[in-house]
Amino acid sequence: MTVHLTTERLVLRRFTDADVDHLVELDADPEVMRYLTGGRATPRADVVGQLLPLYFDHYERYGDLGWWAAEERAGGAFLGWFEFRPTDPADRGEVELGYRLRRAAWGRGYATEGARALIRAGFEELGVRRVVAYTMAVNTGSRRVMEKAGLSYVRTFQEEYPDPIPGSELGEVEYALAAADRKPADRKPAGREPADRKP
């Protein structure tokens, strides 16, 4: 297992081919996919043929920026994933933050904990200048995580979707945090675990 970083309760590691069932199960929950596909599951063929190859490609291209499987540090249960990848393939300075966790992990602070750790590592170790995140305007749970992680609302905008889902008419929102705008308390929070990266 190649560990990207750890927090008080989480291990974020690289995905492997052994994670197919984890990803299929995660995306099979209609509530998990509510604000992404309207509740439709991701087919196994897409996980195998599209998602995992995309994750592996980012490891090859960027090393420490990409998608990370999230596990409970105590017990090793698969919780979901975090995304922390460049928005522009030619520039590592701006990265997009994302997260998708199993419903059983909701409401326990895992999304905020993982997001804060990635943001901290991005600014302090990886040379990231700005972190952005997007979600549907109606997705209040995800918006709360963004705010707790230190990001601020930037704008609401409309996307054109071939197959709109409920709530999409209210638009998407962008949140962001620049390195220069971090609060002092976010720089060295209590309980920070050192990153444990392996080549």
Score class of each variant (00 low, 15 high):
149 A>W: 08
148 K>G: 13
150 G>R: 15
96 E>K: 05
141 G>H: 09
134 Y>L: 06
73 R>N: 09
179 A>W: 13
47 V>S: 00
79 L>I: 00
162 P>S: 12
119 I>P: 03
66 G>N: 15
93 G>L: 12
120 R>S: 11
136 M>W: 10
154 V>G: 09
103 R>Q: 11
60 E>P: 00
126 L>G: 08
28 A>G: 15
186 D>L: 04
142 S>F: 01
64 D>P: 02
143 R>Q: 14
61 R>V: 06
35 Y>E: 01
118 L>K: 04
10 L>V: 07
191 G>I: 05
64 D>R: 13
108 R>E: 02
76 G>H: 03
65 L>C: 14
61 R>C: 09
46 D>Q: 07
142 S>R: 02
27 D>Q: 07
189 P>G: 12
155 R>Q: 15
116 R>L: 05
136 M>A: 14
116 R>M: 07
128 V>P: 05
182 R>S: 09
80 G>S: 12
83 E>T: 05
128 V>E: 07
114 G>Q: 09
59 Y>I: 02
136 M>H: 13
108 R>V: 01
173 V>S: 01
42 T>L: 03
72 E>V: 00
191 G>V: 04
75 G>N: 14
178 A>C: 10
134 Y>N: 10
136 M>G: 07
163 D>W: 13
28 A>T: 08
15 F>R: 00
25 E>P: 00
7 T>N: 01
122 G>W: 06
165 I>Y: 05
89 P>K: 11
112 T>C: 08
35 Y>T: 02
152 S>F: 12
128 V>D: 08
74 A>N: 10
21 D>V: 04
55 Y>Q: 03
76 G>A: 08
94 E>V: 14
118 L>V: 03
172 E>Y: 12
122 G>I: 08
66 G>T: 14
16 T>P: 06
109 G>P: 09
87 T>M: 15
157 F>K: 07
99 Y>V: 02
194 P>I: 06
13 R>A: 09
50 Q>K: 10
80 G>Y: 04
43 P>K: 00
165 I>A: 05
199 P>D: 13
53 P>G: 04
75 G>D: 15
189 P>W: 13
196 D>Y: 04
30 P>V: 15
77 A>L: 08
160 E>A: 14
11 V>W: 00
44 R>V: 09
